[in-house]
Amino acid sequence: MTVVLVADDDADIRDLVAFKLEQAGLEVITAEDGQQAVEQARAHRPTLAVLDVSMPALSGIDVCRMLRADPATAGMLIIMLTARVQEQDVEGGFSAGADDYVTKPFSPRELISRIQALLTRTRA
């Protein structure tokens, strides 16, 4: 079973993403901040992580960098959720090692299809 980590400090968005992922038949684990996200990722080794960029403790970009730096989690798929459209944020995300990014506000439908596309592409 494919495990997806959803890390966002906003519980409503966490629930929304989790609901859609579970509906798509994926197992979801959640984290409320960056620190938790890193711990969860190390503990459960999810296939994919959805990381909000602006989180307390550690930002999504920091988490992404740490996961990429750790050989145990380096191969994880990572999608960034960003509330900013500035290019430097997007570039920051990619340079930290994100596979894709989705800007807020986003359509849940679109997010799920992007996640599924990424999973399918990797499996193939």
Partner: peptide, 19 residues
């Protein structure tokens, strides 16, 4: 403002999609 807006838009879409 975006964060709450994301929730509103997301949940409305899910309702409309009859999720």
């Amino acid at each position: 403002l975006r964060t709450p807006l994301t929730s509103i838009a997301g949940y409305v879409e899910m309702l409309r999609d009859e999720d």
